[in-house]
């Protein structure tokens, strides 16, 4: 295993970078779309049935089947795997954003409305700041799922090639060529990537969570 690692180290790093880029692009798209829709539907407290159920249907789709269908529809490549990963990550982020925003104290929201905040002012100045911790939990989960699934890029026809980074799927999806050792090492890299990313997301969450929210959470957890 050490032998494999030292023989393939620079290649592994490049593939991990490709894996990370792939996952990150899918995550960013999912965050932009999922948080916007989830938060807004949460703010309206209407159409939730539609948004949540649509999310659940997307979540139930087997990623590999989706990739196969999209090969027929749009062909091989980066777009194919990215769509597949977005379909995986988006529902997670959307449902969490929805739950986070609806979970903001209704009395507080009504106070905001009563004081003359308009809808978007309520959403951006009251609901979202209070919803950040829960939204970021969804983002973190989605990241781990995405990294764990991005190896499917190889089946979507996205592999290392001049001008294309590839993904750890180049190794994981090729056990006959790389051997069990190779698959295990590549999987370990994926796991490290997932944890590193999750850690960074946690740091981002801390930075983004307003001080007052942190204080009120620690006050709520302190023994009375």
């Amino acid at each position: 295993m050490i032998q494999y690692l030292s023989d393939n180290f620079s290649r592994l790093l490049v593939l991990t970078l490709g894996h990370a880029v792939l996952s990150l692009v899918a995550l960013l798209i999912s965050v932009v779309v999922g948080v916007s829709i989830g938060a807004y539907v949460g703010h309206l407290r209407r159409y939730s049935f539609l948004a949540i159920n649509l999310g659940n249907v997307l979540r139930a789709l087997p990623t590999l089947a989706l990739i196969a269908v999209m090969i027929a529809l749009i062909g091989f490549g980066f777009v194919n795997i990215t769509i597949a990963l977005v379909v995986l990550a988006l529902p997670l982020i959307l449902t969490n954003a929805y739950t986070a925003v609806t979970g903001v104290d209704r009395g507080m929201v009504e106070a905001a409305r009563g004081m003359g905040m308009k809808d978007l002012e309520i959403l951006f100045q009251v609901e979202l700041p209070n919803a950040i911790p829960l939204i970021m939990t969804g983002v973190r989960t989605a990241w781990v799922y995405t990294v764990a699934t991005a190896y499917l890029a190889i089946f979507a026809g996205y592999a290392t090639r001049p001008g294309q980074l590839g993904s750890l799927g180049d190794i994981i999806g090729n056990p006959s060529g790389e051997g069990t050792t190779g698959v295990l090492v590549a999987a370990a890299f994926a796991i490290v990537l997932a944890f590193l990313g999750a850690g960074l997301i946690t740091l981002a969450e801390r930075a983004m969570t307003p001080t007052g929210i942190k204080l009120s959470r620690s006050a709520a957890m302190a023994p009375a």
Partner: peptide
Amino acid sequence: YVIQQVGLFPHM
């Protein structure tokens, strides 16, 4: 407008 309980915004 003054309400009971959590009328204040905890993040501010």
